[in-house]
Amino acid sequence: MIDIIFHDKTGVTPYNPGQTGGFENAAGSGEIHYYRLFDGVGIMLLRLEMETYTEIRTQIGMIEINFCINGRFETSFSMRDSVLLKPGDMAVSCYDGRHGTRSESRFPLGCYEGLCLEVDPAAAQNWLEKNAPGFSVDFAVLKQNLLGNRWFMFGTAGPRCEHVFRELYENAPYMDLRFLRLKVVELLMLLSRIPQEEGTDLYCSTEQTELAHHLRDHLLTNREGYVSLAQLAEEHGISVSHLQKMFKQVYGVPVYHYIKEYRLEQAAVELVRSAKPITQIAQNAGYDNASKFSEAFRKRYGTTPSQYRTHANGLAKRSREIRME
């Protein structure tokens, strides 16, 4: 069961967030905390343990910005449109009434932590002009900068935006409304002004996407024996260079880079959600040597596995204490 908890100290007109609807009947467990910050703007903290869910969009013109904190997020809007997020990535969409009405999402690691910022541009701009004229945001410029002529985009958030996303995620439970408003406005201003990278081809054929998923699953589940790309390419009747190009087009990174990152993320999940010894988690991630695992983990997360576990457990404890107050 997914618990949806609403936190609203604004006193403005009640508002129904767009993304929570798909979770009400989803199979799984977890929590969604929704914080109404001001008219037209709310953030959701998502902490989920589930495999899939279906989202139905109904609010035309709503800008939705998702940021991945931990886990993996994969969603398909159609046979051509899909999004793949890893920690540090964001996805932006603006529902136009035609594209993305229904999306099918997966959490390959079985869990996900993220932040979703929902913006009603007209209402938000009106509130900012009245209450914070010195920090106004031109939402038409923001939308053009993020999306151009597309209805969705995804990619790395970049260090400046990632820092603000993480500040929002870690500080929302304390419900300091002035601080959260300031951070959201800072984020919106950054997103309006920081140049976004031009994507290459966001689209892959259904056949390419399915084959890339199959190759990934094969590599991830084959922990015991080594399988070369040449073997996989031969099995599927394609060249190694075509396999590598196709995989990178779908997942955005080379094959073995993806596998290494994915297993480190699995390890991060195990550190937080289990009491397994770090040596066992290292072996599960494909490392025979715990020190090599610790070195790779530090390079990826900026901290040792034991420090990561301690910090995550401390955040979870503080969150529980705040909820009980």
Results as ranks from 00 to 15, higher is better:
89 D>L: 04
93 S>L: 11
65 I>C: 05
59 Q>H: 14
97 G>T: 04
60 I>R: 12
72 R>C: 09
62 M>C: 12
70 N>P: 00
116 C>M: 06
86 K>C: 14
111 C>G: 09
65 I>P: 03
59 Q>F: 10
110 G>P: 00
100 G>A: 00
102 R>Y: 13
84 L>G: 08
109 L>V: 02
102 R>F: 07
67 F>S: 02
88 G>I: 08
100 G>F: 10
107 F>C: 08
88 G>Q: 04
97 G>P: 07
79 M>H: 08
98 R>Q: 13
116 C>Y: 04
116 C>R: 08
90 M>A: 00
117 L>K: 01
91 A>P: 02
105 S>A: 15
83 V>L: 09
109 L>E: 12
112 Y>E: 07
93 S>P: 02
83 V>T: 06
97 G>F: 11
114 G>D: 04
81 D>F: 11
101 T>G: 15
113 E>W: 06
106 R>Y: 12
121 P>S: 09
90 M>L: 05
106 R>H: 14
101 T>M: 15
61 G>F: 06
100 G>P: 05
122 A>S: 12
76 S>F: 11
65 I>Y: 00
102 R>Q: 11
62 M>E: 11
101 T>F: 11
86 K>I: 14
115 L>T: 07
113 E>A: 09
104 E>G: 06
70 N>W: 10
59 Q>S: 14
68 C>D: 05
113 E>R: 15
111 C>R: 09
87 P>M: 01
110 G>S: 01
98 R>K: 15
121 P>F: 05
62 M>G: 01
113 E>G: 09
88 G>W: 07
68 C>R: 01
116 C>S: 10
86 K>D: 12
111 C>P: 03
70 N>A: 15
66 N>D: 08
72 R>D: 13
73 F>P: 03
71 G>M: 08
78 S>R: 05
106 R>S: 13
119 V>G: 00
65 I>A: 02
63 I>W: 00
107 F>S: 03
75 T>R: 13
78 S>N: 07
107 F>P: 01
81 D>G: 06
119 V>N: 02
80 R>I: 05
92 V>C: 05
90 M>N: 00
65 I>G: 00
61 G>N: 12
73 F>Y: 15
87 P>T: 04
65 I>D: 05
121 P>Q: 10
118 E>N: 06
82 S>D: 10
118 E>A: 03
119 V>D: 07
89 D>H: 12
63 I>D: 09
68 C>P: 01
85 L>I: 04
82 S>G: 10
108 P>F: 06
98 R>N: 09
93 S>E: 12
101 T>V: 12
70 N>S: 14
77 F>S: 02
122 A>E: 11
94 C>I: 10
60 I>N: 09
60 I>L: 06
112 Y>N: 03
93 S>N: 02
89 D>G: 04
64 E>D: 06
68 C>E: 03
67 F>H: 11
85 L>V: 01
104 E>H: 15
60 I>H: 04
114 G>Q: 00
112 Y>A: 04
93 S>M: 09
92 V>N: 03
80 R>T: 04
100 G>C: 02
71 G>K: 03
65 I>V: 08
75 T>F: 03
77 F>E: 07
90 M>H: 07
99 H>S: 10
111 C>H: 13
94 C>L: 13
